[in-house]
Design a protein around this nucleic acid. Structure first.
Lengths: 245, 245
DNA sequence: AATTCCAATTGATCTGGGTCAATGACCTGG
DNA sequence: CCAGGTCATTGACCCAGATCAATTGGAATT
């Protein structure tokens, strides 16, 4: 059950380049990070950390998708973040996790032991600075999502979610807008938890968007967006943004 | 109409002690902050910054209450944060404001010109560190609010808002829980914008809480909570937290 | 004291999305 | 090939909260 520790890959050779943390590191710092770094993988459905747990590492998602959720005693749950490749997990200076982090498919994490990472951070201003920038991005994403949760209709919510994932996906592959195609990394239930809806409503609205030609499905999870700008209109989105936690 | 620049008060003599920024500064840093600092006041309803504007300062709220809101083209608006005394405004490293900041009553801000503040920050690791901590607090608050917006009923939403304000207020004045009494700094409409409801629903639910003896009103805005723990139960709140952006 | 405001309350009605329940569409393992 | 499981779709009905509209209650103005 326990996830395997993988290997000690040099930071410079890391599959992702740590956009997050050390994109601007010089060689010495990279070497130093390498000494406290390890890889770890999690299977679909496996918890990465549980709310309240001691968290002894920070790190980046290398591949796969994980969710950040909050739960009430009666079981109502709300997703508060979605972790895609290159996203950062963990909060330097905090010991206990505030949320449940769960892998939705096979997730590979590149982790740093927390203590040495914090020490490094204290000595290396630009890492602290980069971390502040990342946290501000997350804060913007969270606040943008507050607008979605508080004021958008079910249809707009779905369109917003699809836009955000498509845009994020597209920025890695193709260039501009137009036609986008991607694999949905979430079940209908996970989508519902992100959007503050029920899974039935999600299903109905996805069907409606399909009927209206705004999206096409291949199987249950493969989404084709013929025209991104039309979908973004549907989302009622002014923001050109496109953060995603 | 333009807000008056007030005076150059020594940071050490500041009405609030900048819990935010320089609580741990030594004398030299305090002096340095003083050279780039000024006070400014805003009247009720006056915008402090407008989304997209160039923002040439950062600062703390000294007194009064301001709101942080986001608006869609069709006018739907969502409050994404509430700024109470000692809260920090502005984002080092970003030039444009992302939200509208509006004073709800007379607000006094203690401002630092942004450029010198950033330079100071670059030279002073613990200020950067403190800022990261504050941003993480805000992120937690935003995510807690996502649960409120996405999954709570109207009654729970009102109870959550009142709890959060009461708790924040109480932490300044009295000590523990029990009976709390405070002035509501928001109109019903502002409450609705915070909670993703209409003002009519807010009004009805406030009346319902009053009828059920969970709160008492004196006038429209003065709230008496006879028993905080009962109100918090009503909010369905597991978190002992009590952040508020 | 009469007249405007404007915030807030309250009532009547409507509806988007929740709830409950049945069905379909794939998988995977025996 | 079928049995059982998971995920998704679809239908029928209901209700919390939105919408539309009228009224109240202060505080400020004349």
């Amino acid at each position: 059950m326990a996830a395997p520790v993988l290997s000690h890959v040099k930071c410079a050779d890391c599959p992702i380049r740590h956009r997050a943390v050390c994109a601007r590191c010089n060689a010495d710092e990279l070497d130093e990070l390498d000494t406290v770094k390890y890889y770890r993988s999690y299977e679909a459905g496996q918890p990465i950390v549980w709310s309240g747990d001691q968290m002894d590492f920070v790190g980046s998602v290398v591949s796969g998708v994980a969710t950040l959720t909050q739960t009430m005693e009666d079981g109502r749950t709300q997703m508060v973040g979605l972790l895609l490749p290159s996203d950062f997990v963990g909060r330097p200076g905090r010991d206990a996790a505030a949320y449940n982090v769960v892998a939705t498919n096979t997730v590979m994490m590149c982790c740093f032991r927390k203590k040495p990472f914090e020490e490094l951070m204290a000595r290396t201003p630009h890492i602290a600075h980069r971390l502040l920038e990342m946290t501000l991005d997350e804060l913007d994403a969270a606040r943008e999502w507050m607008l979605v949760l508080g004021r958008k209709t079910a249809r707009e919510k779905i369109a917003s979610l699809l836009s955000i994932i498509a845009r994020r996906d597209a920025s890695l592959n193709n260039g501009p807008l137009g036609r986008v195609e991607f694999e949905l990394p979430l079940t209908r239930e996970a989508m519902a938890d992100y959007l503050g809806l029920t899974l039935e409503t999600v299903s109905r609205q996805v069907s409606a968007l399909k009927k209206d030609g705004l999206i096409a499905l291949e199987g249950k999870r493969h989404i084709i967006v013929p025209d991104m700008s039309r979908l973004m209109d549907e989302a009622g989105d002014d923001s050109d943004g496109g953060y995603l936690v």
